[in-house]
C-alpha cells in the first residue's frame, strides 16, 4: 500500500483547519447567520406567528424611527459615549497603577492580589440590578455619609466653589469620586493583563539601566511604560468593548426593552446596528490614535 504523504504546507493547512473547525462552524451558525438575519430584520417589520415568523420589507423606516422618532435612543447613545470615555480613562489609569503596586515584592502581596481580583469573580448582572433597585441600601449609605464621613461632600463642593475651581472640572472630579467603587470593580481583568505584561519585561533591561545610573523615575518612563504600551492599547480596547456590551449599560437595557415590550424586533435590530456602528467608529479612532504611540518590541 502506498502511503499518503503531505507536504509541510499541506499538513499545516489540514491540521490547522481541523483544529479551528469548531470555531468555523460556530461562527457561521451562531455569529454570521444571526448577523445577516439581523441586517434583514432591521429593514423589515417582524410578526411572530405560531409556526414561525414573517417579515415584510419596509426599507430604512426602522432606522428612521430609532433616530428621529424614538424619544430616548439618540440622547442615551450620546450619554453612553460620554460615560464610556470617562470610565475608560480612569479604569486604565487605575489598573495600571494597581498593577505597578501589585508587581512589587512586599509582605502580604498575595492577600492583596486575591482581593484585587475578587471583583472578576463576583461580577454578576443580577446582583447589580438588585442593587440599583435597592432603596434601603441607598438610604443607609446617605446616613453613613451624614453621620460618619470626615468631609461632607457638600461642604467640600461649596469650598471648592469658593476657590473658583471651574464648575466643569469640579463635576468631573465629583463624578470620578462617585465612581471609584465602580472603577475599582471593573478593573480586575485589566490589572491581570497589565500585571502579566509587567512580569514579561526582562529583568536584564533594568539591570543594564541600573548600571548606567538611571533612577527609578527614568526606568518607569523609558522602560516600563514603552514595554507595556501595546497592552495599554489592548486594555483600552478591551475596556471599551466590556463597557459597551455590559448589561448594566443603559442603552443595552433600552434595546432589550424595545425588543420585548416596545416597538418590536425590527426597530431593536436597527438600534443595535446603529449602536454597533458607533462602537466601530470609537474603536477605530482609538486604534488610530494610540497605535502611533505604542512601542513594539520586535
Amino acid at each position: 500500500m502506498k502511503r499518503f504523504r503531505l507536504t509541510l504546507r499541506q499538513r499545516d493547512n489540514l491540521y490547522g483547519y481541523i483544529f479551528i473547525l469548531p470555531f468555523v462552524i460556530g461562527f457561521i451558525l451562531f455569529v454570521l447567520a444571526p448577523v445577516i438575519q439581523s441586517i434583514i430584520l432591521s429593514v423589515t417589520e417582524v410578526t411572530v406567528t405560531s409556526t414561525g415568523f414573517t417579515t415584510t420589507y419596509i426599507g430604512f423606516e426602522n432606522y428612521y424611527f430609532a433616530l428621529r422618532v424614538h424619544a430616548d435612543f439618540l440622547r442615551q447613545l450620546v450619554e453612553v459615549m460620554g460615560i464610556m470615555l470617562l470610565n475608560v480613562f480612569w479604569i486604565i489609569v487605575f489598573s495600571f497603577f494597581a498593577a505597578l503596586l501589585l508587581n512589587q515584592k512586599f509582605p502580604g502581596r498575595l492577600v492583596f492580589r486575591i482581593i484585587f481580583f475578587l471583583p472578576v469573580v463576583m461580577a454578576s448582572g443580577v446582583i447589580l440590578q438588585l442593587e440599583i433597585q435597592d432603596y434601603m441600601m441607598a438610604i443607609i449609605g446617605e446616613q453613613v455619609v451624614e453621620n460618619y464621613a470626615v468631609i461632607d461632600p457638600q461642604v467640600m463642593a461649596a469650598f471648592l466653589m469658593r476657590l473658583q475651581v471651574p464648575e466643569k472640572f469640579m463635576e468631573y472630579i465629583a463624578m470620578a469620586v462617585d465612581g471609584i467603587a465602580s472603577i475599582v470593580n471593573s478593573s480586575g481583568i485589566q490589572i491581570l493583563i497589565f500585571l502579566a505584561g509587567l512580569q514579561s519585561i526582562s529583568p536584564s533591561l533594568y539591570e543594564a539601566s541600573q548600571v548606567e545610573g538611571a533612577t527609578g523615575w527614568e526606568n518607569f518612563w523609558l522602560i516600563t511604560l514603552p514595554m507595556v504600551s501595546p497592552l495599554i492599547l489592548t486594555n483600552i480596547i478591551y475596556t471599551i468593548i466590556d463597557f459597551f456590551i455590559s448589561t448594566s449599560n443603559s442603552l443595552i437595557q433600552l434595546i432589550r426593552d424595545t425588543t420585548t415590550q416596545g416597538a418590536g424586533f425590527g426597530v431593536s435590530a436597527a438600534m443595535s446596528w446603529i449602536y454597533f456602528a458607533a462602537i466601530c467608529v470609537v474603536l477605530g479612532i482609538v486604534y488610530l490614535i494610540f497605535n502611533r504611540l505604542v512601542f513594539y518590541h520586535d
Binding site: S38, I241, S272, W273, Y275, C280
Partner: peptide
C-alpha cells in the same frame, strides 16, 4: 474571532432567539 468578541450580544440576540425558538 476578534469580530465575534466585539459585536454587542444584543445585535445577534434577537435572531438567535428566533432561531432557537424555531
Amino acid at each position: 474571532v476578534i469580530f465575534s468578541l466585539v459585536i454587542p450580544p444584543e445585535l445577534i440576540l434577537i435572531p438567535l432567539y428566533l432561531n432557537f425558538r424555531f
